[in-house]
C-alpha cells in the first residue's frame, strides 16, 4: 500500500500536460510525469518519494507513436519495452530492451520512464547512445515541443529543464543495417539487476560500443571505440578497453575485479559476434 497521498491526472495533449505541471508547481506542489510508473510506485511505497500529483502521459497520442517510416523509426516515450520488442523495428534495441527486468514488468515500463528514472542502468538507452549523433529526441516544455539531437540532453543521464518531458526518440532507419549485439550479464539469476550490459555495433568506420553498469552511468567512449576497432587480437582489444574504464563499480552485485574479468570475456565474445 502507498501511504502517501497524491493526485492522479490523465492529460490528453502535450500542452495540457505541461501547463498542468506548471500550475501545480506554482501552487508549491511536487508533480511527476508518469509513464509506466514502476519506479514511482515502488519508491512511493517505500516513502522514498512523496509526489503531490502524477501526470499520466500514456494517453497523449504523440507519446504513444511507434512507427517505422521510410527513413526514420520513432519510439514514443509512453511506448512500453514489450511493445518495442514485439514490433522489433530495431533489432538491436529489442535485444537491449528485452533484457530489462522481466517479461511482465516490460509490459509496464515505458521507454521515457526508463531513460528518466533513477535506476542507473538504463540498458535500453545504449543503442541510442551508440547512434547519439544521429538520434533525435523530442522534448515538450513550456515553449512547446522541440526536436533536438539526443546528445544535447542525454549523456547516460537525462538533463531536462523544469516542466519538460520526453515525447519521443527517433533514429534513422539505416541503423538497422549495422551488425550489432547486446549482452546483459547478471551475477546469478537471469532476472536480476545487471552486473553490466554491453551493446556493440560494427559499421564501415569500425566498432562502436556503449556500456551500462560499469561506471556510475551508461557511457560511450571514443578512445575505447578506437581500441575496439584496432588490429590487435580480440582478447587484447578487450583487455585494453577495460583498462580505460575507471572507476569500475564495486558493489553487492559484483566487485570491480569481478566486473573487469567478466567484461573482458564478454567484450571478446561480442567482437567475435559482430564479425571482428
Amino acid at each position: 500500500m502507498i501511504a502517501s497521498r497524491f493526485q492522479y491526472y490523465r492529460p490528453e495533449t502535450l500542452d495540457e500536460a505541461c501547463q498542468l505541471y506548471m500550475r501545480l508547481q506554482e501552487a508549491k506542489k511536487m508533480p511527476l510525469y508518469y509513464g509506466g510508473g514502476t519506479e514511482i510506485l515502488t519508491r512511493a511505497r517505500e516513502s522514498a518519494i512523496r509526489p503531490d500529483a502524477v501526470l499520466d502521459i500514456k494517453h497523449i497520442p504523440e507519446c504513444r507513436r511507434l512507427e517505422m517510416a521510410e527513413d526514420t523509426i520513432v519510439f514514443g516515450a509512453a511506448v512500453t519495452l514489450d511493445e518495442i520488442c514485439r514490433t522489433n523495428y530495431w533489432p538491436l534495441l529489442s535485444d537491449a530492451a528485452g533484457r530489462v527486468a522481466d517479461h511482465t514488468t516490460r509490459c509496464k515500463i515505458t521507454l521515457g520512464g526508463h531513460l528518466a528514472g533513477t535506476i542507473p542502468y538504463r540498458e535500453a538507452s545504449l543503442p541510442f547512445m551508440i547512434f547519439a549523433r544521429d538520434a533525435k529526441i523530442t522534448v515538450q516544455g513550456p515553449a512547446g515541443p522541440r526536436r533536438i539531437p539526443l546528445v544535447q540532453v542525454y549523456d547516460g543521464q537525462l538533463h531536462l529543464g523544469s516542466a519538460e518531458f520526453v515525447v519521443d526518440l527517433s533514429v534513422p532507419r539505416s541503423v538497422r543495417d549495422y551488425r550489432g549485439a547486446s549482452v546483459k550479464t547478471t551475477r546469478i539469476d537471469w532476472v536480476d539487476y545487471p552486473l553490466f550490459t554491453v551493446t556493440m555495433v560494427r559499421d564501415s568506420s569500425g566498432v562502436r560500443a556503449a556500456f551500462s553498469g560499469v561506471l556510475a552511468d551508461p557511457f560511450t567512449s571514443a578512445s575505447i571505440d578506437k581500441i575496439l576497432s584496432g588490429k590487435a587480437d580480440l582478447s587484447q582489444r578487450a583487455r585494453e578497453s577495460v583498462a580505460q574504464m575507471n572507476p569500475i563499480i564495486d558493489d553487492l552485485h559484483g566487485s570491480s575485479a569481478y566486473r573487469r574479468f567478466r567484461l573482458t570475456t564478454v567484450i571478446s565474445q561480442l567482437l567475435q559476434e559482430i564479425g571482428e
Binding site: Y8, G36, G37, T38, L41, T42, D56, K58, T104
Partner: peptide, 19 residues
C-alpha cells in the same frame, strides 16, 4: 499479484487503480 489488463500480464502492485 499478476492480473491481465487488455490481454497483457501486469503486476497489479505496479498499476494505479485510476490507470
Amino acid at each position: 499479484c499478476t492480473v491481465m489488463v487488455d490481454g497483457l500480464p501486469i503486476k497489479s502492485c505496479l498499476m494505479l487503480t485510476a490507470e
